[in-house]
């Protein structure tokens, strides 16, 4: 039996009208934008299922755009996000699509850059404002963004997991979940931790020479 707290029932405090279509969409956009690292000039939102059918009436479109600008589900700026994006010179487009075997409230968010290839993130709003990220630029993943998350790509070799977990342990950071996958010589690690990490720990992890790419969603 899942344990509920008082503010699971009286909450979230959110901009309406729908926890799954508005609050979840804003959260999805925000986390996707954090993973992308910014610097994009345009974003395409490919919407599937109920998202595709009802996005205008639920303000899913405004919530997604607010999310990629860094706003949270409770920020009243959600309502005016189109203008805010325009002011920042960020273009956006909504495309209705069909995705196989996807949750009814799924969006594929494609970030476009002037100086490098597109980068995309797929995720679903699974109810009550909660989300799940299922794909990061071709890597199948499964994380909720409720915990601080570290995403690392590195050349696969012995001892990498131990190196990273030692750094975390030395700074008394507890690992909640860890998933490692491999594609040829390259490995990807998703690690959810219990507490946010300081800048010096980020640097220490980034300094591991085998690591080719590191993202921290804190």
């Amino acid at each position: 039996m899942k344990e509920y707290g008082v503010f699971d029932i009286l909450g979230p405090v959110m901009v309406g009208p729908s926890s799954s279509h508005t609050a979840g969409a804003a959260r999805l956009g925000k986390i996707a934008s954090e993973i992308s690292g910014g610097g994009f000039y345009k974003v395409e939102f490919h919407l599937h299922g109920s998202f595709a059918k009802t996005y205008k009436g639920h303000g899913t479109d405004k919530a997604l755009v607010a999310g990629i600008l860094g706003y949270s589900p409770s920020d009243e700026e959600l309502r005016d996000s189109f203008q805010l994006a325009k002011d920042k010179g960020i273009l956006f487009e909504f495309i209705e699509t069909e995705m196989e075997y996807a949750h009814p409230n799924t969006a594929k968010i494609v970030f476009k850059y002037k100086d490098r290839p597109d980068f995309y993130i797929t995720g679903s709003s699974i109810g009550g404002g909660s989300i799940i990220i299922t794909d990061i630029d071709g890597d199948e993943v499964e994380f909720t963004g409720e915990y601080p998350t570290i995403i690392l790509k590195y050349k696969d070799q012995k001892g990498m997991i131990s190196k990273i977990s030692s750094i975390l342990a030395n700074h008394e950071i507890n690992i909640a979940t860890m998933k490692v996958s491999r594609d040829g010589d390259n490995a990807t690690m998703f690690c959810e931790i219990d507490t946010p990490i300081e800048e010096n720990v980020v640097e220490e992890i980034k300094n591991i020479k085998e690591i080719t790419r590191a993202k921290f969603i804190l």
């Binding site: 909450g11 405090v13 901009v15 309406g16």
Partner: peptide, 21 residues
């Protein structure tokens, strides 16, 4: 009405029923 206008509410227990409590 505030909820449907993209205003701020507290879900109780959901956004759709947030007016009652």
């Amino acid at each position: 009405e505030v909820n449907a206008s993209m205003g701020k509410v507290c879900a109780a227990p959901t956004a759709g029923a947030s007016g009652i409590l």
